[in-house]
Each structure stands twice: as structure tokens, then as C-alpha cells.
Design a protein around this nucleic acid. Structure first.
Length: 454
RNA sequence: GUGACCAUGGUGUAAUGGUUAACACGGAGGUUUGUGGAACCUUCGAUCUGGGUUCAAUUCCCAGUGGUCACCCCA
């Protein structure tokens, strides 16, 4: 790997940054296929596209997402410009969209405003399964209404997008974290409950009591499970408005035939959430091979264990009725949204690749032979472009044999051969790579002819 | 941020405290600028970086970097 340039100094070619990767070939098509299909679904449900910049001002997230959240505290890519501005690479999609809503006066549009977005997001953390520093996300937002039908629309559209991607055993975990009326009371009660048991808690939970009490509820430490089971649940503490909002959302879900699981331990990491919060996971049944002792094997008692495994959240979201005010809006702008992790969707068992419409696999391999023909090659390719025929070629190669070999290796069904003779006659040879039969076609007739083989 | 495991050509693998690091695939070229999938030949190309132990390190040790996974947290 170590190369020395003539001056003798060591020089390594640059590589990608930790936790970021190049997307090449088939993988690229998988991404664009997914985004294309998801966008289409979103459009059918009334969402319109928006693209916000990757760089935003730091305060958008410190005041929007919350200073004490992990995302802001330790996972943001921050940078200082030459002019002294503090910018960050967007770690999530909702705050930028609220920013855009306020900045462009979308209050004056007909409400609610329904938007979808897609693209890369950045979090500076140690990479691991389903978690890259740069990741691709697709999101939906409905701003300007607090009606429960909006919550249901977001969830429903999300489920359709995931089903279109082939996923089947989806589980919707849903909860309500209340609003500014009932949440503080609930949190107080939760804290006082946990304080009574403080000596039995794990280190993390002791810290959580002070810093982020709602997080106590998703502690996975076995030590804390009993205490957690006895903890007061947020749903029973909801005020009347929140309770009926939650109830309506659930009724819509039932009407839409979306199975859900109320999960009182579901809380989410961002400060701006209120009322509805949800996460979607894929549930898979796995057979676990356990080490079976010899005697048990003989007795035949031991059967393979089936465990229900839940994947990482493929997406999650919730209502953010206070986000706008946190950002300095004089008026409340209620909203609800979801973000989907594309890489996580790709990792699921059910996922089926979606091909983008724009690029089909080329059916034609262009082969040229001889100086004059090579010179005219790019013009012939332009004719194909006008006829919307994608192709592969290797203009850099000279011999007919090696060009045919490339076409063969790439499994392209037709070769188009253009040599000196054809150049003079204004024709090309179309060779069927499977049957090896050839047709001579006049260049003027090419577009028409190519339609017959598409 | 913490911890575990890992690191050999472009890819996948092999080997070793001691001469020239092996094999397959791949790339380029040729036998063969007018008809391919084969064969043969030539060629390209690696021990992540830095330090230490040693007569000798790709091999052992330490650190760094990167990968994978887990925790924290999250999409």
C-alpha cells in the first residue's frame, strides 16, 4: 500500500471518511428505486416534495431538537465557517422542515401542509449495525394541524411505503407522551417512583432520573426490569384532550386495519415530541440452534427454540406540537412526521429490491471496428439516446473479439456492430448474442428496429 | 465516548520468527483489428500506519487508524 513518489515521500491515496461509504452499481439503483417508489406513494397520498440543505445553522437543532438530547449533545457534525458561523450537517429532517415552513410563510398556504423529503443525514457516532455516520432517510411531515387524522395518515402512508418495499411482518409500536399539561405531572410521578427504588437501579438509570427521566422506561438492564414493570404508565396520566386524541388515532388505525401495539415504554429521544410517538419494526421468527446435550438428543425432548426477534426501528416519528415555538415562532404550528432509515429497511428479511424507472439494464452493446467507424461512433450513440436506448460500449477497445467478449461477460443480449463496411453503407449489424443470428439494419431505421427488441 | 473481535494484491483466500509471501478471480496485452463465451502465453498487483522485542517481524507486544459488533443513544 505504501508507495513512494519520486521525491521519496510516502503518499497514500485518500479514502472515505469513517462511517461513510461510496454507493456503486446495483446498490445505487436500490437506493434510487426505493426513493422513487416511496416518493410516488407519498404523492398519491397528497404529499409534495421538499429538499432542504444539508448544512443548517447550529441553533436550529440546539433549540429545536433540544440541548440535552444525545443527538445534539454528542452526535452532530459541527463546523465553523471562515466567517464565524456555526453550522451543522443535518442530523434529522423535521427541524429543517419546520424551519422552511416558517421561513417561507407556509402558514398562508392551505393547511395542513404535507411534505416528503429524502436524502442523507449525518450523526457522529461509532458505526455499527444499521447505523452509519451518513445514512439515507425518507420522511413525511404534516404541518399545520393537530387533528388525529394527520397522525393516522402519516402512519398509514409509512406502512404502505414499507409494504411496497416488500416488508411483511411489521409491528407498529405506539404510545402517547402527553402534552404540556399532563406530561410534566407524569414525569414528576415517574421520578418520585424511581427515587424510591434508587438503590436498586443500574448506573445509567441513576443518571437518567436527573437527565432524561422518560428514558428510564427503555432501560434494558435486567436489574431494572422489575422496577420498570411497576412504574406508572404515561397513558393513564393523559389529560382529557390527550386521551381522546390518542383514542382517535387508535380508532383510525383500526379502521385502516393497521395492527398496533401500545407500548407504554416507548419514548423518543428528541425533546420536541408530544402526544403520539411511534416506531415501526420488523418482527421475524428465528429458529435458534442451541447446544443440545447428548442425553437430551436421545430423549428427543429438546426442540428447536423459536424466538421472536425484533429488528432495529425501521422508522419512527411522532407529533411535535411545540417545535415551532422552540424555534421562536410566535404561534404554535402543530405537526406530525416520520423518518425512515433506508439502510435498515434494506437489512430486513422481507425487503425486495425496487428498480428505478429511469435506468434499465442496457440491452445493447455497441461495438465499433476501424478508424472511420470509431470516429462516427459517438454520433450513432446519440441516435440511440434520442430513441431512449441505454447501452454499454468500450470505444477504447479495438478488436472485434475482445468487444464481443465484454458484451458476453456483461450478459448483454444484443450487440450492435458498426465497422468500415457498415459505415459506408449507413447500416449497423444487430447481433442476437444468444442465437448468434444477425440482421443488417439501416441507420435511419434503427430507432424503429430497436423498439422491436426492447 | 466505552468495550470486544478483526486487518495479506482491486476481490476472495493461503502461508511463515529466517532466501523470491502462494493460489484463484480480476485488469491490461498477446496467440487472433471482421465475429464472443474455451485454451494457452505475457504482464499488473499485497502483509494498514508508527513504535518496541529480536541477529531476523508480515508473524510476537504496544499505540494509532480503519472494519465488524455491542453499550450509550437512535433512523
Amino acid at each position: 500500500m505504501t508507495k513512494k513518489n519520486p521525491s521519496g515521500a510516502k503518499k497514500e491515496p485518500p479514502t472515505t471518511v469513517k462511517g461513510m461509504q461510496d454507493v456503486i452499481g446495483e446498490e445505487y439503483y436500490a437506493y434510487s428505486g426505493f426513493f422513487e417508489k416511496a416518493s410516488e406513494v407519498a404523492m398519491y397520498y397528497g404529499f409534495r416534495p421538499i429538499e432542504t440543505p444539508i448544512l443548517e445553522k447550529e441553533e436550529l437543532f440546539t433549540s429545536g431538537v433540544g440541548l440535552d438530547t444525545d443527538i445534539v449533545e454528542k452526535e452532530m457534525y459541527t463546523l465553523k465557517t471562515k466567517g464565524g458561523d456555526h453550522l451543522v450537517m443535518r442530523p434529522e429532517g423535521t427541524a429543517p422542515i419546520m424551519r422552511a415552513y416558517l421561513e417561507h410563510g407556509m402558514q398562508s398556504w392551505s393547511q395542513p401542509v404535507m411534505l416528503y423529503y429524502k436524502g442523507p443525514f449525518f450523526r457522529h457516532e461509532n458505526p455499527q449495525k444499521g447505523r452509519s455516520r451518513e445514512f439515507q432517510s425518507f420522511g413525511l411531515e404534516i404541518l399545520g394541524t393537530q387533528k388525529s387524522i394527520a397522525d393516522a395518515t402519516i402512519i398509514h402512508t409509512t406502512m404502505i411505503i414499507l409494504k411496497e418495499a416488500g416488508l411483511q411482518n411489521l409491528v407498529l409500536n405506539i404510545n402517547s407522551v402527553g402534552d404540556k399539561e399532563c406530561r410534566p405531572k407524569y414525569v414528576r410521578e415517574l421520578v418520585s417512583y424511581y427515587k424510591k427504588h434508587i438503590s436498586e437501579l443500574c448506573v445509567d438509570c441513576k443518571r437518567r432520573i436527573k437527565e432524561n427521566p422518560l428514558r428510564l422506561l427503555d432501560c434494558k438492564n435486567p436489574k431494572c426490569q422489575d422496577i420498570k414493570a411497576g412504574a406508572p404508565s404515561s397513558v393513564t396520566h393523559l389529560c382529557d384532550e390527550c386521551r381522546s386524541h390518542f383514542k382517535e388515532v387508535l380508532e383510525y388505525l383500526e379502521a385502516l386495519n393497521i395492527p398496533y401495539r401500545i407500548n407504554n415504554n416507548l419514548v423518543r429521544g428528541l425533546d420536541y415530541y408530544s402526544r403520539t410517538v411511534f416506531e415501526i419494526t420488523e418482527e421475524t421468527v428465528e429458529t435458534v440452534e442451541e447446544e443440545i446435550s447428548e442425553e437430551k438428543k436421545k430423549e428427543g425432548k429438546e426442540e428447536p427454540k423459536e424466538i421472536v426477534a425484533t429488528s432495529l426501528a425501521l422508522g419512527g416519528g411522532g407529533r411535535y406540537d411545540y417545535l415551532a415555538r422552540n424555534l421562536g415562532s410566535k404561534k404554535d404550528i402543530p405537526g406530525i412526521g416520520v423518518g425512515l432509515g433506508v439502510e435498515r429497511i434494506f437489512m430486513t428479511q422481507g425487503y425486495k429490491r425496487q428498480d428505478p424507472r429511469i435506468i434499465k439494464h442496457p440491452k445493447v452493446y455497441f461495438i465499433q471496428l476501424g478508424t472511420h467507424a470509431k470516429m462516427r461512433s459517438l454520433n450513432i450513440i446519440e441516435i440511440l439516446r434520442n430513441a431512449r436506448v441505454p447501452l454499454m460500449q468500450s470505444l477504447a477497445k479495438d478488436s472485434l473479439g475482445s468487444q464481443l467478449a465484454s458484451a458476453e461477460k456483461l450478459k448483454i443480449p444484443y450487440a450492435m456492430i458498426f465497422g468500415e463496411k457498415e459505415s459506408i453503407d449507413d447500416t449497423v449489424i444487430i447481433r442476437d448474442m444468444n442465437t448468434r443470428s444477425q440482421d443488417t439494419v439501416k441507420i435511419v431505421d434503427l430507432p424503429k428496429f430497436l423498439k422491436t427488441i426492447k
